[in-house]
């Protein structure tokens, strides 16, 4: 929801970043305010996922120029874990499996790291179990998944639900969801999207990174950005996503060619 008194949460200016000396982001500009839902769309290799990893602080991605302010603070001066504690959340496209580490314990440690930063009391094992039971409902997840190792042997859909469960526990200020819809059947997609909708409020913002319109049938974005060749090529309302659905990305090539970038 676009509101006049909204807080500027994320202010990205002329962001350039590379992986293994290969430039991927070539001047991204984006402002995200509280209460807003943004969708970033684009083809494979357009830089969508790189943008999400750079914001979360993945060590393999190097920022070469540009700035990102998170609530006025230089994001790049913060370690990945510090960003998370301050409320930046990345929902992974491919959540990794961590054998031997109990999901419940992982969720508890993560939740407490964030709570500590918010001056909330840490939850002990018992209080946390009550807390997590409550949150499981957001994604209609079976409590049995708490007893297993983090993501180990989870199906694609279960992994994505586990991501949204983490989001529900961490209560982020800016949630970046990277291809959360990929690999989900329609029922799972509805559950995951329902979770995201429940968690969105006037004080936080969501950045959906997606390929397809179908996620946006479930979550209504305030803004849609089309990324190509490491930049945001066009920004519009949700009608832009519908237009893309009909016309595809061919116009992107033409526009890039016209700008002499392709």
């Amino acid at each position: 929801m676009i509101r006049p008194d909204a807080e500027l949460l994320l202010d990205i200016t002329d962001l350039h970043a590379s992986v293994e000396d290969q430039p991927i982001l070539k001047g991204v500009n984006l402002q995200v305010r509280s209460g807003e839902i943004h969708a970033v769309m684009g083809r494979n290799g357009s830089g969508k996922s790189t943008l999400s990893k750079v914001l979360a602080g993945h060590p393999a991605y190097r920022v070469t120029s540009g700035t990102v302010l998170y609530r006025g603070e230089n994001l790049f001066e913060l370690e990945a874990e510090e960003r998370a504690r301050l409320g930046v959340f990345l929902g992974f496209q491919y959540p990794v499996e961590i054998p031997g580490v109990s999901n419940l314990e992982f969720l508890r440690v993560a939740t407490n790291a964030r709570r500590l930063k918010r001056n909330l009391e840490e939850l002990d094992t018992f209080d946390f179990e009550d807390h997590v039971q409550e949150r499981l409902k957001v994604v209609q997840m079976d409590p049995a998944f708490l007893e297993r190792s983090v993501n180990e042997g989870f199906s694609g859909g279960e992994k994505k639900r586990n991501e949204i469960l983490q989001m529900a526990l961490l209560e982020p200020v800016v949630a970046i969801l990277d291809e959360t819809d990929s690999g989900l059947d329609i029922d799972a997609l509805r559950i995951v999207a329902g979770g995201v909708n429940q968690l969105a409020n006037a004080d936080n913002a969501t950045l959906l990174i997606t390929h397809y319109q179908r996620l946006l049938d479930e979550i209504t974005p305030d803004y849609v950005h089309v990324m190509a060749s490491g930049r945001i090529l066009r920004t519009g309302g949700r009608e832009l996503a519908l237009e893309l659905e009909q016309t595809g990305y061919d116009w992107v090539d033409k526009e890039l060619a016209a700008q002499g970038v392709a």
Partner: peptide, 19 residues
């Protein structure tokens, strides 16, 4: 794996030790 844990607010050393 380390980045996954760190991106949930778990410090580097604690992440290693958990694993």
């Amino acid at each position: 794996q380390l980045f996954y844990l760190q991106s949930r607010g778990i410090g580097f050393e604690e992440a290693v030790s958990m694993m």
